[in-house]
């Protein structure tokens, strides 16, 4: 456990979890006013925030990925930095800000990542797949250890959450995220256009949704205290229990995802014996339990039940399962079917 984690556990005593649950519900309601028709995704994002996990959003262009993340950043409070992924963005551009001063001499100042020091709460990486692999590898450390080395010293970001988004439409001049980087995101949330005709009508005709900046400003600021979040998160993990039966169930799920044929999962036109080539890492499983505990906490329970695992499984695990290359191109439908059948086949409890 990292230094911050230990501190968080020590400080977690005496935290009023029920009031924090109310805060979480307020946070969800507030976001729901701004981003309509995405209740489930907002709930998932809240789970990720309370599980201290980084989130990658993906989806079509213009479905509200950026709006959702900006609104969440505002609700969280704390320092907020945003970087646009471009093909010529280099790691140094994120850490340092270089320019020619008024006196004509080159200057190097802290860049977006370290500008606010340890106060940085949300680092928002827009269009992450447009950045180069060098940038992705910088993110690896930032996400996994919440620290970075610059100006010959270590910077720590105890409150940091990395939000990233990417669109799935364009493939040119983009770099697929390496598996190691994807594994460090707690969740990959797929945002799609709302299907409810009433929501669609509002989005198209209500002038409130036409001006993004004004819309974001309508979100109440700092609903959640970002400084207390690490302790709250640790307290949640402490207070919500996973029984032996649930542990066995989780291990069964893990086993079944690694060996779907043995679990009786059958997908048409897919050779189940060679479908899954790897993934579902131990880190992934621990993330799954972290998210499930938060889901149970938000549902006002002190025990994890299979429904919690099911509610977060796709978003926390789907991007960690690696298929045989011939199935990778059809990834989306296959992985959905795989997860659906997983919960239909593995007996619970």
């Amino acid at each position: 456990m990292s230094r911050e984690g230990l501190q968080a556990v020590k400080a977690s005593e005496g935290i009023d979890l029920s009031s924090w649950r109310q805060h979480a519900i307020d946070f969800e309601t507030e976001l729901g006013k701004v981003v309509i028709g995405q209740q489930r995704n907002i709930h998932l994002l809240t789970i990720a925030i309370f599980a201290r996990g980084h989130v990658l959003l993906e989806g079509d262009v213009g479905v509200g990925k950026t709006t959702l993340l900006r609104a969440a950043s505002r609700g969280l409070g704390g320092a907020y930095e945003r970087v646009e992924g471009t093909i010529d963005l280099m790691p140094a551009d994120m850490v340092y800000h270089t320019y020619i001063g008024e006196d004509g001499r080159p200057r190097v100042e802290p860049g977006p990542v370290i500008r606010y020091g340890s106060e940085l709460t949300v680092f928002f990486f827009n269009e992450i797949n447009r950045a180069r692999p060098q940038v992705h590898s910088l993110l690896l450390r930032l996400m996994a250890e919440r620290s970075i080395a610059a100006f010959n010293k270590e910077y720590h970001f105890p409150y940091l959450l990395v939000f990233a988004d990417r669109n799935r439409i364009e493939r040119e001049e983009t770099f697929e995220l390496p598996a190691a980087a994807r594994d460090r995101f707690l969740m990959e949330i797929n945002i799609s256009t709302p299907t409810d005709p009433d929501v669609r009508r509002q989005l198209a005709f209500d002038p409130r949704f036409h001006d993004g900046d004004k819309l974001i400003e309508s979100v109440r600021e700092s609903i959640l205290d970002h400084r207390a979040l690490p302790q709250v998160a640790a307290a949640i993990q402490e207070s919500v229990t996973a029984s032996e039966d649930l542990q066995r169930y989780t291990l069964d799920l893990w086993q079944a995802i690694r060996n779907p044929a043995a679990a009786g999962i059958e997908i048409p036109d897919v050779d189940m014996d060679r479908l899954v080539s790897g993934g579902a890492s131990p880190r992934g499983m621990s993330y799954l339990l972290r998210a499930a505990r938060v889901a149970a906490f938000l549902d006002n329970r002190t025990m994890v039940v299979p429904e919690d695992l099911r509610s977060v499984f796709f978003e926390t695990m789907a991007h960690r399962i690696f298929f045989d290359p011939i199935y990778e191109l059809r990834r989306e439908p296959i992985v959905r079917e795989l997860v659906r059948q997983l919960f239909e086949r593995v007996p619970a409890p």
Binding site: P306, E307, R310, F343, R345, V346, P347, A348
Partner: peptide
């Protein structure tokens, strides 16, 4: 309880959770 759960599972053709 397990017997009853398996009966529900068989009847539904899938695993039935409380939800």
């Amino acid at each position: 309880l397990l017997r009853l759960h398996r009966a529900f599972d068989l009847r539904a053709g899938r695993r039935v959770l409380a939800d």
